[in-house]
Structures are given as structure tokens and as C-alpha cells.
Simulated assay, not measured.
Amino acid sequence: MAIASLMGNALMLVLILLDPRLHRPMYFLLSQLSLMDLLLVCTIVPKMAADYLTCNKAISSTGCGLQIFVSLTMGGGEGFLLAAMSYDRYVAVCHPLRYTVLLSRRLCLQMTLASWFLGAADGLMQAAAVLSFAFCSAREIDHLFCEAPMLVRLACADTSVFEYVMYICCVLMLLVPLSLILTSYGLILAAVLQMRSNKARKKACATCSSHLSVVGLFFGAAIFIYMRPKSYRSANHDKVVSTFYTIFTPVLNPLIYSLRNSEVQEALKKWLGKCTNFRCQQT
């Protein structure tokens, strides 16, 4: 699954980079989503697989801090990136003639940099805070990789203040982009209901369906992990959901966008055709 994720997201990056038809804000944002998924898989899965194959289930403090930082950076950044993509869908459906004005390259770059910065700030703060605690003699993490909520359980000190702050940060990092996404799609829905043409309605729904699928996968898993009350948490459930968003979601994202997007399909066919012609010329 990890190899499929790496290949799928790397292929999306290559297609968006090489095909001039995909040099648009929507696909630039999609390339950043693929890059975040690549970094998340590369940080989490190799160590997880090595631990399973070698039975050496130890990790250094630096490695643990890196996993916390990267997972939170990619998670937080992806949430705001999905919000930026929802704005792109809103402009494409509601203001198609002003698309290049309302979503310029400069604004697209600013939204992307803001997503990376906000995710990195949250990841750095939580990783530094978690590793500053004194841990008890039992340092076995009942999880597949280092994640902030799991490490807090091992701390000897009183972590109630940090848990409260972490909960507030997670609420902000999840609910703020989710609110922006819901606002964008509320405006899109209002515009779709006013359309008289069934063809235009179907086109608008097709434009948004891929993004909505990714939003549901991402925010469903993130809310389950970080926003549940402590009394309802189960280590086994957390493992399943963490595996879902670190391995399965990065596999599904490129599939969702490639299978439902005719422009990506055409770029892939063009690229495969060039590769086939090159091989025939070599032989």
C-alpha cells in the first residue's frame, strides 16, 4: 500500500509538472496535496515496516519528535490546503469568467505557503512540548508510530494544561478549514440550485465530487483521532484510524482525482503514449 501511495502521488506530481494543460491553480494545489502525502508516507511507513520486519521496535527521541512534527505539519497543512481547494471550486462554479482574476497565481501561492506555515507551526509547538515532559520508566508506546496523544499518556508530570491547549489547537486546525470548506460548498449549492440546465448541474457536481470525497476521508479520520473525549478513546481504534490516514488515504487521494478527472486521464494517456513510442524507437 505504501509503494502504491508513493507511485500514485509521484505520478501526479510528474504529470502536473510536465503537462502544460495542468498548469492551473487547481492542479498546483493538487500537486501540494500529493507532496504532503508523499512526505507523510516516507516519514511514517519505512520505520513502521522496519520495526515489523526486524522486531527492533525502538525509536530515538529525535526520530519520535520528527514523526510527530511531520504528521502534524502534513495533517494541519492538508486541512488548510483542502480549504484553499474548496475556494478554487467555488470560483470555478460560481464565477467561471473571473477565475483567473479571483484566483491568481500569487493568491494561490500565498494560500499554499500559509497552509505549510500553519501546519509546521502546529507541528513544531506540539512536538517540542511533548518531548519536554519527563517520561516514566514504562516507555512503551501502544501505537504504530509516535503521535502526540499517545506520548502524553506516558508522561509522569501533570499534562492537563497541555492536553487542554492541544485540544484547542486541534479544534482550531480542524474546524477553521472545515468551516471555510462548508461555507464554500454552501455557496456552491446555492448556485447549483439556481441553475436551470441539468447539464450545468451535473458538471458542477462532477467538479466538486472528487474534492468532497477527499475532504470526507481526511476530516473524518482527523476528528476521530484528535477531537474525541478522553473517556471514549481506545488504543486499538486509534491504531486502525491512524493506519487509515497515514497509508490508505494517501493511496486513495490520487486515485480519486485521476479516476474522476478527464484532464488528468488525458495527461496520463499522453505520457504513456510518449513512453511507449520512446521504447519502440529504442528497440
Rank of each mutant, 00 (worst) to 15 (best):
R106Y: 14
S213D: 00
T207I: 03
F133H: 06
V161N: 03
V161L: 09
A114L: 04
M150C: 11
A121S: 13
I188S: 04
V176I: 08
S137P: 00
L124N: 03
C170P: 05
T207Y: 05
G216A: 11
C205V: 09
K202F: 11
V165E: 02
F117A: 15
M195G: 06
V171P: 03
M150E: 13
L144K: 05
A200H: 10
S209N: 05
Y185E: 01
L193A: 09
I181P: 06
S209E: 00
S132C: 01
M111L: 15
P177T: 05
A129T: 14
P177S: 06
Q194N: 09
F117Q: 02
S210C: 11
S210H: 01
F135S: 12
S184G: 08
T183W: 12
V171R: 05
L118S: 09
C205S: 10
L182H: 09
D158H: 02
Q194K: 12
F117C: 15
Y167M: 13
F117W: 10
R106A: 14
D158V: 07
D158Q: 00
C169K: 11
L174E: 03
G119R: 00
L118Y: 03
A190H: 00
A121T: 12
C208P: 07
S132W: 03
A121Y: 02
F145C: 13
M166C: 03
V171F: 12
L107I: 14
I168A: 14
A191W: 04
R201M: 14
K199E: 14
E163P: 00
T207K: 11
P177G: 09
I141N: 05
C136Y: 03
T207E: 14
L187W: 10
S209R: 05
C156T: 12
K199R: 10
T159N: 04
A204N: 01
V214I: 07
R196M: 07
G186D: 03
D158T: 09
L109A: 15
A114S: 01
Y185P: 01
T159A: 06
G123W: 10
L174Y: 01
E163L: 12
S213G: 14
S197F: 08
C146R: 01
R139Y: 08
G216W: 01
D142W: 09
F135D: 10
V171D: 02
H211I: 07
L124T: 13
F162M: 04
F133R: 01
V130F: 10
D158C: 04
L175Q: 08
I168M: 15
L109D: 05
K203Y: 00
F135W: 11
V176R: 04
F162V: 00
A206Q: 12
M195L: 07
V165Q: 05
Q126G: 02
L178M: 15
P177K: 02
N198V: 01
L212T: 08
L212E: 07
I181V: 13
L113A: 13
S160Y: 00
V214R: 01
A191S: 11
S197Q: 13
R153W: 02
T112M: 12
L182R: 08
V165R: 02
H211Y: 06
V192L: 11
L131I: 06
M173W: 07
L180I: 04
Y185L: 04
V215N: 05
I141Q: 01
A129N: 09
M125D: 10
L182P: 12
S209P: 05
M125P: 01
A191N: 03
L212H: 08
A157L: 03
S115K: 04
K203C: 08
C205L: 14
Y164F: 12
